[in-house]
Design a protein around this nucleic acid. Structure first.
Length: 301
DNA sequence: AACTTGTCACTCGTGTCACC
DNA sequence: GGTGACACGAGTGACAAGTT
């Protein structure tokens, strides 16, 4: 009888800010003295009961207590909420209600702590749409038709069964089963030029992509690059390159050593630094940029 | 004034044990 | 198995004191 009352008191205090002993006594048809004795018992049981004397006083439970000490640790609460938040960002159906409930139970607000957007900061409308379609097909288990351009610049039309989005080495990839190759493939999102959802679904559980080993293509076709970047570009340098590939020269300029695929996208990237960059290696990259600049100049002759 | 805290004496219900 | 004595915890009421 006492145990049952104690449990109900804890439950009441968790949902109500403050309750007087008189109110609790009325609920359980016992005297206030009995309620105060119950409070002693709960305190001995390490439930953080707070009593406030005087007008507007009463009995309450420590705000942070809620469920954390008995069932879920602080860290587990954070993981749970953030995991659900990530699912919400993926437009996962019905997650909103669950998320709101848990936030209330844990008495937490994570609204501004994490936001997942799969597109790039300044991505154009087409890329946004590609991500949108990929997300949709992933959730609904629908096939996709894509136009893909591989690292050797070979263009192809493929029907793929999307399985997983991957973020590796600052780039997004899509793990999928490719009907053209009749095998599992990983596609660099930036190389997907066009995408359309096919009204044909598949059972995701029947397809298990092999463990992701990204070096498979990441370094394929890449060349060693050595760049000298003006110190004025500090923000971009630290944002766009791995720390390990940056060396600061005595004059403050940055020497960058890393591997990249020499293609049109990369040439445009180099040109985006304007006169704040010098190519030290390789010679083929210097030559390619010279050609680009010459072509550009022809437009203004 | 409205509330909590602490003490004391008391009743009530329940479990245990010895006895018939 | 039924009964009575006893111990013990839960609950009560009254009161004074302290706090806001």
């Amino acid at each position: 009888m006492q145990i049952e009352r104690l449990l109900r008191i804890v439950d009441i205090l968790m949902h109500k800010k403050t309750c007087t002993a008189k109110e609790l006594a009325d609920i359980f048809h016992v005297s206030t003295k009995t309620i105060y004795r119950d409070m002693d018992t709960l305190t001995i049981a390490q439930i953080p009961i707070i009593t406030t004397k005087g007008k507007n006083g009463g009995i309450s439970i420590l705000e942070d207590y809620k469920i954390d000490k008995s069932l879920v640790t602080q860290e587990e609460q954070n993981s749970l909420i953030m995991g659900l938040q990530a699912l919400k960002d993926l437009n996962y159906v019905d997650i909103d209600i669950t998320l709101t409930k848990l936030k209330n139970v844990f008495n937490k607000s994570y609204d501004s702590l994490i936001e997942i957007d799969f597109a790039y900061w300044d991505s154009h409308g087409n890329l946004q749409q590609i991500f949108k379609d990929i997300k949709k097909s992933l959730l609904n288990g629908q096939k996709l038709k894509i136009s893909y351009c591989d690292i050797s610049n070979n263009k192809s039309e493929r029907i793929i069964l999307p399985l997983k989005l991957l973020f590796k080495q600052k780039e997004w990839y899509l793990s999928a089963f490719c009907e053209l190759k009749n095998d599992y493939r990983i596609f660099n999102i930036l190389r997907i030029n066009n995408v359309s959802i096919i009204n044909e679904s598949f059972v995701k559980t029947l397809y298990k992509a092999p463990k992701t080993k990204l070096p498979f293509t990441v370094n394929k076709g890449k060349s060693e690059i050595k760049l000298l970047i003006d110190k004025k570009m500090k923000d971009r340098v630290y944002q766009e390159f791995e720390k390990e590939s940056i060396t600061v020269n005595e004059d403050g300029d940055y020497c960058i050593k890393y591997k990249a695929v020499l293609n049109d996208w990369f040439y445009s990237y180099i040109l985006s630094y304007g006169t704040n960059i010098k190519i030290l290696e390789p010679e083929s990259l210097k030559e390619a940029i010279r050609n680009k600049v010459n072509l550009l100049m022809e437009h203004y002759n």
